[in-house]
Design a protein around this nucleic acid. Structure first.
Lengths: 170, 170
DNA sequence: GTCATGTGCTTCGGATTCGAAGCAACTGCC
DNA sequence: GGCAGTTGCTTCGAATCCGAAGCACATGAC
Protein backbone atom coordinates (compact mmCIF):
# COMPACT_ATOMS: atom_id res chain seq x y z
CA UNK A 1 0.00 0.00 0.00
CA UNK A 2 2.51 2.50 1.09
CA UNK A 3 5.04 1.61 -1.52
CA UNK A 4 5.43 -0.19 -4.79
CA UNK A 5 8.44 1.74 -5.92
CA UNK A 6 8.19 3.18 -9.40
CA UNK A 7 9.24 0.52 -11.88
CA UNK A 8 10.08 3.21 -14.38
CA UNK A 9 13.71 3.99 -14.94
CA UNK A 10 15.12 7.25 -16.17
CA UNK A 11 15.15 6.22 -19.79
CA UNK A 12 11.53 5.21 -19.78
CA UNK A 13 10.55 8.42 -18.09
CA UNK A 14 12.55 10.34 -20.63
CA UNK A 15 10.84 8.60 -23.52
CA UNK A 16 7.41 9.13 -21.98
CA UNK A 17 7.90 12.80 -21.27
CA UNK A 18 9.52 13.40 -24.63
CA UNK A 19 6.58 11.77 -26.34
CA UNK A 20 4.00 13.80 -24.51
CA UNK A 21 5.84 17.08 -24.73
CA UNK A 22 6.86 16.72 -28.34
CA UNK A 23 3.37 15.83 -29.46
CA UNK A 24 1.84 18.61 -27.41
CA UNK A 25 4.18 21.23 -28.72
CA UNK A 26 3.74 20.04 -32.26
CA UNK A 27 0.01 19.93 -31.97
CA UNK A 28 -0.17 23.43 -30.59
CA UNK A 29 1.89 24.88 -33.38
CA UNK A 30 0.00 22.96 -35.99
CA UNK A 31 -3.32 24.12 -34.60
CA UNK A 32 -2.23 27.68 -34.81
CA UNK A 33 -1.10 27.28 -38.39
CA UNK A 34 -4.34 25.59 -39.38
CA UNK A 35 -6.32 28.29 -37.71
CA UNK A 36 -4.42 31.00 -39.49
CA UNK A 37 -4.36 29.37 -42.89
CA UNK A 38 -7.84 27.96 -43.13
CA UNK A 39 -9.70 28.55 -39.90
CA UNK A 40 -9.66 24.84 -39.12
CA UNK A 41 -9.21 23.06 -35.86
CA UNK A 42 -6.91 20.09 -35.75
CA UNK A 43 -9.76 17.61 -35.70
CA UNK A 44 -11.43 19.32 -38.61
CA UNK A 45 -8.24 19.09 -40.58
CA UNK A 46 -7.85 15.44 -39.74
CA UNK A 47 -11.39 14.77 -40.84
CA UNK A 48 -11.00 16.59 -44.11
CA UNK A 49 -7.69 14.90 -44.77
CA UNK A 50 -9.17 11.50 -44.06
CA UNK A 51 -12.07 12.15 -46.36
CA UNK A 52 -9.85 13.58 -49.04
CA UNK A 53 -7.77 10.46 -48.86
CA UNK A 54 -10.73 8.14 -49.34
CA UNK A 55 -11.35 7.00 -52.92
CA UNK A 56 -14.91 8.25 -52.94
CA UNK A 57 -14.30 11.17 -50.67
CA UNK A 58 -16.78 9.88 -48.16
CA UNK A 59 -16.90 7.76 -45.04
CA UNK A 60 -19.30 6.75 -42.36
CA UNK A 61 -19.22 8.52 -39.02
CA UNK A 62 -18.11 5.44 -37.15
CA UNK A 63 -15.20 4.84 -39.49
CA UNK A 64 -14.14 8.42 -39.07
CA UNK A 65 -14.31 8.19 -35.32
CA UNK A 66 -12.16 5.12 -35.48
CA UNK A 67 -9.48 6.80 -37.51
CA UNK A 68 -9.33 9.92 -35.44
CA UNK A 69 -9.12 9.47 -31.70
CA UNK A 70 -12.17 11.51 -30.81
CA UNK A 71 -15.42 10.68 -29.14
CA UNK A 72 -18.61 10.11 -31.08
CA UNK A 73 -20.24 13.23 -29.76
CA UNK A 74 -17.20 15.32 -30.52
CA UNK A 75 -17.21 13.99 -34.03
CA UNK A 76 -20.85 14.91 -34.46
CA UNK A 77 -20.09 18.41 -33.30
CA UNK A 78 -17.23 18.89 -35.71
CA UNK A 79 -19.09 17.33 -38.60
CA UNK A 80 -21.92 19.78 -38.02
CA UNK A 81 -19.49 22.64 -37.98
CA UNK A 82 -17.87 21.52 -41.19
CA UNK A 83 -21.25 21.04 -42.82
CA UNK A 84 -22.30 24.55 -41.87
CA UNK A 85 -19.24 25.85 -43.61
CA UNK A 86 -20.00 23.76 -46.66
CA UNK A 87 -16.81 21.76 -46.49
CA UNK A 88 -18.59 18.43 -46.16
CA UNK A 89 -22.07 17.06 -46.72
CA UNK A 90 -23.87 14.53 -44.59
CA UNK A 91 -26.40 12.09 -45.92
CA UNK A 92 -28.12 8.94 -44.87
CA UNK A 93 -26.32 5.79 -45.76
CA UNK A 94 -28.03 3.70 -48.41
CA UNK A 95 -27.52 0.44 -46.61
CA UNK A 96 -28.22 1.39 -43.08
CA UNK A 97 -30.89 3.92 -42.40
CA UNK A 98 -29.17 4.92 -39.18
CA UNK A 99 -25.79 5.44 -40.73
CA UNK A 100 -24.58 8.85 -41.78
CA UNK A 101 -22.17 9.21 -44.67
CA UNK A 102 -19.91 12.21 -44.65
CA UNK A 103 -18.54 13.44 -47.94
CA UNK A 104 -16.00 16.13 -48.64
CA UNK A 105 -17.08 18.88 -51.01
CA UNK A 106 -15.03 20.67 -53.63
CA UNK A 107 -14.82 23.58 -51.32
CA UNK A 108 -13.56 21.27 -48.64
CA UNK A 109 -10.86 20.05 -50.96
CA UNK A 110 -10.00 23.63 -51.78
CA UNK A 111 -9.52 24.51 -48.14
CA UNK A 112 -7.46 21.40 -47.68
CA UNK A 113 -5.25 22.33 -50.60
CA UNK A 114 -4.84 25.81 -49.24
CA UNK A 115 -3.82 24.66 -45.85
CA UNK A 116 -1.62 21.78 -46.80
CA UNK A 117 1.56 23.48 -47.95
CA UNK A 118 1.86 25.46 -44.75
CA UNK A 119 1.13 22.36 -42.77
CA UNK A 120 3.89 20.45 -44.45
CA UNK A 121 6.25 23.35 -44.10
CA UNK A 122 5.64 23.55 -40.41
CA UNK A 123 6.28 19.85 -39.97
CA UNK A 124 9.55 20.19 -41.81
CA UNK A 125 10.62 23.07 -39.64
CA UNK A 126 9.51 21.75 -36.30
CA UNK A 127 9.59 18.00 -36.41
CA UNK A 128 11.87 16.88 -39.19
CA UNK A 129 14.50 19.59 -39.12
CA UNK A 130 16.49 18.16 -36.24
CA UNK A 131 16.09 14.56 -37.38
CA UNK A 132 18.01 12.51 -39.86
CA UNK A 133 16.43 10.34 -42.46
CA UNK A 134 17.24 7.29 -40.37
CA UNK A 135 15.74 8.93 -37.30
CA UNK A 136 12.46 9.44 -39.08
CA UNK A 137 12.36 5.86 -40.26
CA UNK A 138 13.14 4.60 -36.79
CA UNK A 139 10.56 6.86 -35.25
CA UNK A 140 7.89 5.66 -37.66
CA UNK A 141 8.75 2.08 -36.89
CA UNK A 142 8.82 2.33 -33.11
CA UNK A 143 5.81 4.57 -32.69
CA UNK A 144 3.94 2.61 -35.31
CA UNK A 145 4.38 -0.53 -33.27
CA UNK A 146 3.35 1.26 -30.10
CA UNK A 147 0.25 2.66 -31.77
CA UNK A 148 -0.78 -0.69 -33.21
CA UNK A 149 -0.35 -2.28 -29.84
CA UNK A 150 -2.48 0.35 -28.13
CA UNK A 151 -5.16 0.13 -30.76
CA UNK A 152 -5.69 -3.53 -30.26
CA UNK A 153 -5.24 -3.60 -26.53
CA UNK A 154 -8.64 -3.38 -24.85
CA UNK A 155 -8.95 -0.54 -22.38
CA UNK A 156 -9.71 -2.96 -19.61
CA UNK A 157 -6.58 -4.97 -19.90
CA UNK A 158 -4.21 -5.65 -17.04
CA UNK A 159 -3.34 -2.06 -16.32
CA UNK A 160 -6.65 -0.37 -16.80
CA UNK A 161 -9.30 -2.65 -15.53
CA UNK A 162 -12.26 -1.27 -13.88
CA UNK A 163 -15.61 -0.32 -14.89
CA UNK A 164 -18.30 1.36 -12.95
CA UNK A 165 -19.23 -1.06 -10.29
CA UNK A 166 -22.96 -0.80 -9.90
CA UNK A 167 -23.43 -3.46 -7.34
CA UNK A 168 -25.09 -5.94 -9.62
CA UNK A 169 -23.77 -7.20 -12.82
CA UNK A 170 -24.71 -5.68 -16.07
CA UNK B 1 -1.49 21.39 -60.16
CA UNK B 2 -0.59 24.95 -59.40
CA UNK B 3 0.10 24.12 -55.82
CA UNK B 4 3.36 22.81 -54.55
CA UNK B 5 3.24 19.05 -54.31
CA UNK B 6 3.56 17.70 -50.79
CA UNK B 7 7.23 17.39 -49.93
CA UNK B 8 6.41 14.72 -47.38
CA UNK B 9 7.26 11.18 -48.28
CA UNK B 10 5.57 8.09 -46.95
CA UNK B 11 8.04 7.59 -44.15
CA UNK B 12 7.64 11.10 -42.84
CA UNK B 13 3.89 10.83 -42.99
CA UNK B 14 4.09 7.55 -41.16
CA UNK B 15 6.22 9.03 -38.42
CA UNK B 16 3.95 12.04 -38.08
CA UNK B 17 0.75 10.05 -37.89
CA UNK B 18 2.27 7.50 -35.58
CA UNK B 19 3.38 10.27 -33.26
CA UNK B 20 0.01 11.92 -33.14
CA UNK B 21 -2.00 8.76 -32.85
CA UNK B 22 0.23 7.09 -30.32
CA UNK B 23 0.28 10.12 -28.07
CA UNK B 24 -3.47 10.62 -28.39
CA UNK B 25 -4.28 7.04 -27.59
CA UNK B 26 -1.86 7.00 -24.70
CA UNK B 27 -3.14 10.26 -23.33
CA UNK B 28 -6.73 9.10 -23.45
CA UNK B 29 -6.01 5.90 -21.60
CA UNK B 30 -3.92 7.68 -19.05
CA UNK B 31 -6.59 10.27 -18.46
CA UNK B 32 -9.11 7.58 -17.79
CA UNK B 33 -6.83 5.85 -15.33
CA UNK B 34 -6.07 9.08 -13.52
CA UNK B 35 -9.73 9.92 -13.33
CA UNK B 36 -10.56 6.54 -11.90
CA UNK B 37 -7.69 6.30 -9.49
CA UNK B 38 -7.57 9.80 -8.11
CA UNK B 39 -10.10 11.97 -9.87
CA UNK B 40 -7.34 13.92 -11.54
CA UNK B 41 -7.13 15.33 -15.01
CA UNK B 42 -3.95 14.87 -16.93
CA UNK B 43 -2.85 18.44 -16.38
CA UNK B 44 -3.54 18.20 -12.69
CA UNK B 45 -1.41 15.10 -12.50
CA UNK B 46 1.39 16.75 -14.38
CA UNK B 47 1.25 19.71 -12.06
CA UNK B 48 1.29 17.60 -8.94
CA UNK B 49 4.09 15.47 -10.32
CA UNK B 50 6.13 18.51 -11.20
CA UNK B 51 5.63 19.98 -7.75
CA UNK B 52 6.34 16.68 -6.07
CA UNK B 53 9.58 16.50 -7.99
CA UNK B 54 10.75 19.92 -6.89
CA UNK B 55 13.08 19.97 -3.88
CA UNK B 56 10.88 22.35 -1.93
CA UNK B 57 7.61 21.08 -3.33
CA UNK B 58 6.78 24.46 -4.74
CA UNK B 59 7.14 26.44 -7.91
CA UNK B 60 6.01 29.68 -9.42
CA UNK B 61 3.11 29.71 -11.81
CA UNK B 62 5.21 30.78 -14.74
CA UNK B 63 7.70 27.99 -14.22
CA UNK B 64 4.87 25.50 -14.08
CA UNK B 65 3.35 26.85 -17.26
CA UNK B 66 6.69 26.51 -18.95
CA UNK B 67 7.07 22.90 -17.98
CA UNK B 68 3.58 21.88 -18.97
CA UNK B 69 2.40 22.99 -22.38
CA UNK B 70 -0.71 24.78 -21.19
CA UNK B 71 -1.83 28.36 -21.35
CA UNK B 72 -1.54 30.74 -18.46
CA UNK B 73 -5.25 30.95 -17.96
CA UNK B 74 -5.68 27.20 -18.09
CA UNK B 75 -3.01 26.86 -15.45
CA UNK B 76 -4.79 29.34 -13.21
CA UNK B 77 -7.98 27.35 -13.57
CA UNK B 78 -6.35 24.06 -12.67
CA UNK B 79 -4.40 25.55 -9.81
CA UNK B 80 -7.63 26.88 -8.36
CA UNK B 81 -9.26 23.50 -8.71
CA UNK B 82 -6.35 21.78 -7.00
CA UNK B 83 -6.37 24.36 -4.25
CA UNK B 84 -10.06 23.83 -3.63
CA UNK B 85 -9.37 20.16 -3.15
CA UNK B 86 -6.54 20.93 -0.78
CA UNK B 87 -3.88 19.30 -2.90
CA UNK B 88 -1.84 22.46 -3.29
CA UNK B 89 -1.60 25.84 -1.64
CA UNK B 90 -1.01 29.16 -3.34
CA UNK B 91 0.79 32.05 -1.76
CA UNK B 92 2.40 35.27 -2.75
CA UNK B 93 6.01 35.02 -3.62
CA UNK B 94 8.30 36.70 -1.17
CA UNK B 95 10.45 38.28 -3.80
CA UNK B 96 7.92 39.39 -6.27
CA UNK B 97 4.61 40.63 -5.02
CA UNK B 98 2.97 39.63 -8.31
CA UNK B 99 4.30 36.14 -8.28
CA UNK B 100 2.30 33.22 -6.98
CA UNK B 101 4.04 30.25 -5.49
CA UNK B 102 2.26 26.94 -5.69
CA UNK B 103 3.12 24.28 -3.15
CA UNK B 104 2.02 20.69 -2.97
CA UNK B 105 0.42 19.61 0.29
CA UNK B 106 0.74 16.32 2.11
CA UNK B 107 -2.64 15.39 0.81
CA UNK B 108 -1.46 16.21 -2.65
CA UNK B 109 1.46 13.89 -2.21
CA UNK B 110 -0.88 11.24 -0.93
CA UNK B 111 -3.06 11.43 -4.02
CA UNK B 112 0.03 11.35 -6.16
CA UNK B 113 1.25 8.23 -4.39
CA UNK B 114 -2.10 6.60 -4.81
CA UNK B 115 -2.30 7.27 -8.48
CA UNK B 116 1.26 6.57 -9.40
CA UNK B 117 1.41 2.78 -9.39
CA UNK B 118 -1.52 2.47 -11.74
CA UNK B 119 -0.06 5.13 -13.93
CA UNK B 120 3.20 3.31 -14.23
CA UNK B 121 1.43 0.05 -14.82
CA UNK B 122 -0.57 1.50 -17.63
CA UNK B 123 2.53 2.86 -19.27
CA UNK B 124 4.16 -0.52 -19.04
CA UNK B 125 1.18 -2.21 -20.61
CA UNK B 126 0.43 0.28 -23.33
CA UNK B 127 3.63 1.99 -24.28
CA UNK B 128 6.55 -0.10 -23.20
CA UNK B 129 5.19 -3.59 -23.69
CA UNK B 130 5.79 -3.75 -27.43
CA UNK B 131 9.15 -1.98 -27.25
CA UNK B 132 12.60 -3.28 -26.53
CA UNK B 133 14.99 -1.61 -24.20
CA UNK B 134 16.89 -0.23 -27.15
CA UNK B 135 13.67 1.06 -28.67
CA UNK B 136 12.92 3.04 -25.58
CA UNK B 137 16.36 4.54 -25.50
CA UNK B 138 16.16 5.46 -29.15
CA UNK B 139 12.74 6.93 -28.70
CA UNK B 140 13.87 9.07 -25.80
CA UNK B 141 16.81 10.30 -27.82
CA UNK B 142 14.97 11.15 -31.02
CA UNK B 143 11.89 12.68 -29.44
CA UNK B 144 14.05 14.46 -26.92
CA UNK B 145 15.91 16.17 -29.71
CA UNK B 146 12.68 17.02 -31.50
CA UNK B 147 11.20 18.46 -28.33
CA UNK B 148 14.24 20.56 -27.56
CA UNK B 149 14.23 21.88 -31.07
CA UNK B 150 10.57 22.82 -30.88
CA UNK B 151 10.97 24.47 -27.53
CA UNK B 152 13.54 26.90 -28.72
CA UNK B 153 12.68 27.33 -32.35
CA UNK B 154 9.09 28.25 -32.94
CA UNK B 155 6.95 31.23 -32.31
CA UNK B 156 5.19 30.01 -29.27
CA UNK B 157 1.60 30.86 -28.75
CA UNK B 158 1.76 30.43 -25.02
CA UNK B 159 4.73 32.70 -24.59
CA UNK B 160 2.49 35.33 -26.01
CA UNK B 161 3.71 38.73 -25.13
CA UNK B 162 6.43 39.38 -27.57
CA UNK B 163 8.73 42.26 -27.65
CA UNK B 164 7.57 44.90 -30.00
CA UNK B 165 9.90 46.20 -32.56
CA UNK B 166 10.49 49.86 -32.13
CA UNK B 167 9.38 52.20 -34.82
CA UNK B 168 6.81 50.02 -36.47
CA UNK B 169 3.20 49.46 -35.77
CA UNK B 170 2.24 45.95 -35.05
C1' DG C 1 -45.10 -10.74 -36.70
C1' DT C 2 -43.39 -9.16 -32.29
C1' DC C 3 -40.36 -8.41 -28.62
C1' DA C 4 -35.68 -7.90 -26.76
C1' DT C 5 -31.32 -6.52 -27.67
C1' DG C 6 -27.65 -4.18 -30.30
C1' DT C 7 -25.86 -0.41 -33.15
C1' DG C 8 -25.32 4.47 -35.09
C1' DC C 9 -25.70 8.91 -34.23
C1' DT C 10 -27.35 13.04 -31.78
C1' DT C 11 -28.57 15.82 -27.81
C1' DC C 12 -27.63 17.47 -23.29
C1' DG C 13 -25.02 19.11 -19.41
C1' DG C 14 -20.79 19.95 -17.48
C1' DA C 15 -15.80 20.43 -17.53
C1' DT C 16 -11.76 22.25 -19.59
C1' DT C 17 -9.40 24.87 -22.80
C1' DC C 18 -7.65 29.11 -24.98
C1' DG C 19 -6.86 34.16 -26.26
C1' DA C 20 -7.78 38.74 -25.16
C1' DA C 21 -8.37 42.09 -21.88
C1' DG C 22 -7.56 43.76 -17.27
C1' DC C 23 -5.16 44.70 -12.96
C1' DA C 24 -1.13 45.05 -10.12
C1' DA C 25 3.65 45.12 -9.29
C1' DC C 26 8.47 45.54 -11.12
C1' DT C 27 12.19 47.78 -13.88
C1' DG C 28 14.71 51.17 -16.20
C1' DC C 29 15.27 55.83 -17.42
C1' DC C 30 14.94 60.78 -16.66
C1' DG D 1 10.29 60.76 -7.33
C1' DG D 2 7.72 59.83 -11.48
C1' DC D 3 6.60 57.93 -15.95
C1' DA D 4 6.55 54.25 -19.53
C1' DG D 5 7.04 49.80 -20.80
C1' DT D 6 7.21 44.73 -19.01
C1' DT D 7 5.92 40.97 -16.64
C1' DG D 8 2.82 37.79 -13.58
C1' DC D 9 -1.38 36.30 -12.92
C1' DT D 10 -6.50 36.40 -13.09
C1' DT D 11 -10.99 37.19 -15.13
C1' DC D 12 -14.07 36.85 -18.98
C1' DG D 13 -16.38 34.95 -22.97
C1' DA D 14 -16.48 31.63 -26.38
C1' DA D 15 -15.20 27.26 -28.33
C1' DT D 16 -14.49 22.49 -27.85
C1' DC D 17 -14.40 18.35 -25.66
C1' DC D 18 -16.37 14.17 -23.33
C1' DG D 19 -19.74 10.71 -21.12
C1' DA D 20 -24.37 9.61 -20.31
C1' DA D 21 -28.83 9.51 -21.85
C1' DG D 22 -31.96 9.39 -25.67
C1' DC D 23 -33.86 8.27 -30.23
C1' DA D 24 -34.38 5.53 -34.33
C1' DC D 25 -33.30 1.78 -37.06
C1' DA D 26 -31.48 -3.19 -37.40
C1' DT D 27 -31.10 -7.85 -36.12
C1' DG D 28 -32.04 -12.15 -33.90
C1' DA D 29 -35.06 -15.18 -31.12
C1' DC D 30 -39.44 -16.89 -30.54
Amino acid sequence: MTSTPPPLDATQLGAYFALIEASSLLKHSVEQQLRDAGDLSYVQFQLLATLGDAPTGSRRMTDLADGVVYSRSGLTYQAQTLEKRGLVTRSQSADDERGVTVTITDEGRAVLAEVFPGHVGLLDDLLFAPLSRADVETLADILGRARDHMRQTPPRSAGARRRKKAGAEN
